[in-house]
C-alpha cells in the first residue's frame, strides 16, 4: 500500500475542521488517501471528505497522553504503510509527530502552510524566522511527516460517502505522563487557533475592563475568536494563552482585526498569513497599516463600538 495518511483530530467525537481541511488537501495531492482516528469518533464519515479507508485505534486519548497517541499512531502507520503522514499543527500533534519521525528514522516539516509533491517527494512550504521568510522542506525519507497550520487550505463539504473502517490494535511502549488536572480558561468561546475570524486587541486598550468591554464584545457579536498582542497579555488585559505572535499562537483566519496593535515583527509573525487584515489604530504611521487590507485611522474607543453597532444592524 502507499498513499497519504491524514490524522483526523476530534474533540469528544466531533471532528475538528482541520480533518476535512487536510483530507481535502490530501485528495488534491493525488494517490490514495487514508485517515487515522484515535479514540471514539464516527470514523466512517471521513469518507465524505475523500478518505478511502479509515484506520481507528481504540483508547482513551481524551486525557491527552502524547506517548499513547504516538504508540497508537505508530501502529496505524505500520498498518497503512503510507508515503506521507499529515496532521494538524495542534498542540497534541506537535507533541506526537516528532516522536514518530524519530521512531521511523524519517523527517518532518512543521507548521506548514503549503504542501506539494515534486518528483515523488513531499515538498512543504513553511514560515521561518518569525514569518519573515518562507522556505521549502523537501523530505526524502519515508514516511514523510508534516503538520499543517489550521486554515491553510479550503475545507471541502462532505459528499456523504462512507469509508470502510479498520480497527488497529496497539500497545503502550512509550513512558507515559498522566493528566491530573485540566484547567479551562475563564472567558473563551471560540478556539483562537482555528477560528475563521479573530478580533485582537493591543496595549492601547489600556485596561482589562476596556479589553473586555471593547474587544470581547465585538468578538461575541462577530462570532470571532479573541486574541491579544504580547503587550496586552503582559499587561494582564488578556490571558497569556490568547497571545498572537511569535511567542504565542499563530493564526491564519479569513478575517483578522488588529485593534490598537502597532504591528511589531513579533506580532506579525503570528497573523501575517491571515486572508483579510483590518487595522484600527490612531497612529497613521503604525506598521500594521502596511499589512492591512483595510485600515481605519481613529480612536478605537469610538470606532470599535460603532463597528459593533454596525455589525449588529448588518
Amino acid at each position: 500500500m502507499s498513499g497519504i495518511l491524514v490524522v483526523a483530530e476530534h474533540s469528544g467525537g466531533t471532528f475538528k475542521a482541520t480533518a476535512s481541511e487536510l483530507l481535502g488537501k490530501a485528495s488534491q495531492l493525488g494517490g490514495t488517501v487514508y485517515a487515522a482516528v484515535l479514540g471514539d469518533a464516527p470514523a466512517a464519515s471521513l469518507g465524505g471528505f475523500g478518505a478511502s479507508k479509515v484506520f481507528q485505534a481504540a483508547g482513551d486519548f481524551g486525557t491527552h497522553d502524547s506517548g499513547a497517541a504516538a504508540d497508537a499512531l505508530a501502529a496505524i502507520i505500520r498498518a497503512a504503510d503510507p508515503d506521507i503522514v499529515i496532521a494538524p499543527a495542534s498542540y497534541e500533534m506537535r507533541d506526537v509527530l516528532p516522536r514518530l519521525t524519530a521512531r521511523f528514522d524519517s523527517a518532518m516539516a512543521s507548521e506548514c502552510n503549503g504542501l506539494r509533491i515534486d518528483g515523488g517527494k513531499l515538498v512543504a512550504r513553511r514560515p521561518i524566522y518569525a514569518g519573515s521568510i518562507e522556505s521549502d522542506v523537501t523530505i526524502s525519507a519515508r514516511p514523510a511527516f508534516a503538520t499543517v497550520r489550521p486554515n491553510s487550505f479550503d475545507k471541502p463539504a462532505s459528499t456523504g460517502a462512507s469509508a470502510p473502517v479498520e480497527s488497529v490494535a496497539w500497545s503502550a511502549t512509550t513512558p507515559t505522563t498522566k493528566v491530573v488536572e485540566t484547567l479551562k480558561p475563564e472567558t473563551r468561546g471560540i478556539d483562537l487557533a482555528t477560528a475563521s475570524k479573530v478580533v485582537a486587541g493591543g496595549r492601547s486598550l489600556k485596561s482589562k475592563e476596556s479589553f473586555d468591554s471593547v474587544i470581547r464584545t465585538l468578538g461575541e457579536v462577530m462570532g470571532a475568536g479573541v486574541g491579544a498582542s504580547r503587550a496586552a497579555t503582559d499587561a494582564g488585559y488578556a490571558d497569556h494563552s490568547e497571545q498572537v505572535g511569535q511567542t504565542g499562537q499563530t493564526v491564519a483566519p479569513n478575517l483578522y482585526l488588529a485593534i490598537g496593535i502597532s504591528g511589531a515583527i513579533q506580532h506579525l509573525a503570528g497573523m501575517r498569513t491571515s486572508k483579510v487584515i483590518v487595522a484600527i489604530n490612531k497612529d497613521p504611521e503604525a506598521p500594521i497599516f502596511q499589512h492591512a487590507s483595510y485600515g481605519i485611522v481613529g480612536d478605537l474607543f469610538e470606532v470599535v463600538p460603532a463597528l459593533t453597532e454596525a455589525l449588529k444592524n448588518a
Binding site: 519573515s132 522556505s135 522542506v137 523537501t138 499589512h291 483595510y294 485600515g295 480612536d299
Partner: peptide, 27 residues
C-alpha cells in the same frame, strides 16, 4: 532525511485601502 531550500520573503499582500470618515461612517 530532508533539506531546506527555496527561501523567499512571504508573498506581498495586495495594497490595502484606508477608510475615511467619522467613526460611525467608517465603521
Amino acid at each position: 532525511r530532508s533539506s531546506v531550500g527555496n527561501l523567499a520573503p512571504p508573498p506581498a499582500r495586495p495594497a490595502g485601502r484606508m477608510i475615511e470618515g467619522d467613526a460611525a461612517t467608517a465603521a
